[in-house]
């Protein structure tokens, strides 16, 4: 196993990999470079992203139901009642 994504995915889905000792053991069986392995052990996401040449995502906000949307819904309810 060489791909860091595969390693992370395995860490996410394998019940036996939910402790530091098991993760360190797993990393000895991979072909990840030492800096990447160390970033995983240290839970250092910034370094891991740099190692993977990933640009951090800065925006993932989701806005609330808008006033206009709510007004439309209210109109529908009112019309249904009046019908």
């Amino acid at each position: 196993m060489s791909n860091v994504i595969q390693v992370l995915e395995q860490m996410g889905r394998d019940a036996s990999l939910q402790n530091n000792q098991a993760i360190e053991q797993l990393l000895t069986t991979t072909e990840l470079d030492s800096k990447t392995s160390q970033a995983i052990i240290n839970k250092d996401i910034n370094t891991l992203e740099k190692q993977m040449c990933i640009t951090p995502i800065i925006a993932h906000a989701l806005h609330p139901a808008e006033e206009e949307e709510n007004k439309d819904e209210n109109k529908k309810v009112k019309n249904a009642v009046n019908a």
Partner: peptide, 26 residues
Amino acid sequence: SLMSTGITERWLDEMHTDVRSLQYCY
């Protein structure tokens, strides 16, 4: 894809040959 981190976005990228991130819209 609309993922919350670059790493999860990469994870999805590896699941399919044509994954298009929507992050550029932000």
